[in-house]
Design a protein around this nucleic acid. Structure first.
Length: 204
DNA sequence: CACATGATCGCCT
DNA sequence: GGCGATCATGTGG
């Protein structure tokens, strides 16, 4: 099996040097749409062998739990895979799609409320190819995040964190990508992205 | 540029 | 047994 846990070296960052503070629990316990909007412009950072690697998030999607046909927790589904979605806000939910790509989500709201925000794209630091992380599978591959990371705490841990960005990006809103099976929910405007970023995964 | 396809496997029916 | 919160590559216009 391919357990590529190694981040791309071009994504090395220094969180202290960037002056970015980690998001705390209350940030993630808010409404899922608010978190999805707030994560655009924030950074995801993960540590590997004592160094930090990360990117600035430029595209997210909200998944609204039991009433959202596109969500894995739709209708209260609760399997071992989805279990981390039921955790307290501020945990990671990572799943495998199409048998080969990992997708990372930030769990929102209180424990027992299975909602989350999919991280669809990010920009690496200066020196990294602009589109290295432009897509949910590429984001995980670039940072070396696999399904083994599902359930990890994003708050106060030593391996993954979300860092507050500086400044507010200009946001654009659209329907979510790749969920045409979701009935009415496929029309919901739950995708948020930085309209000035070249790293957004799907352009119109 | 716009599709079309294959890869590959966990989860649901 | 079918299909997916994807991606890279290939074909054709």
């Amino acid at each position: 099996m391919i357990a590529n846990n190694r981040p791309d070296p071009r994504l090395a960052i220094d969180p202290a040097g960037l002056g970015l503070a980690a998001c705390a629990r209350p940030f993630f316990r808010r409404g899922t749409v608010a978190v999805a909007r707030g994560l655009v412009g924030a950074w995801i950072a993960r540590r590997w062998r004592g160094r930090w690697y990360g990117g600035r998030i430029v595209e997210t999607e909200a998944y609204l739990g039991v009433t959202d046909r596109a969500a894995h927790s739709w209708a209260g589904r609760r399997t071992p895979r989805v279990e981390p979605m039921y955790a307290d806000g501020g945990h990671l939910y990572v799943f495998l799609v199409y048998g080969m790509h990992s997708c990372a989500n930030v769990v929102t709201r209180a424990e027992g409320v299975p909602e989350a925000v999919l991280l669809r794209a990010a920009e690496g630091p200066d020196g990294a190819p602009v589109r290295l992380l432009s897509g949910p599978g590429k984001l995980c591959a670039g940072l070396g995040i696999t399904t083994g990371w599902s359930g990890r705490d994003l708050v106060g841990g030593e391996s993954v964190r979300i860092l507050r960005g500086r400044g507010r990006p200009r946001l654009a809103v659209s329907r979510r990508i790749g969920i045409d099976y979701a009935g009415e929910a496929k029309e919901w405007p739950l995708r948020f992205y930085d309209r000035d970023s070249e790293a957004v995964s799907v352009r119109r």
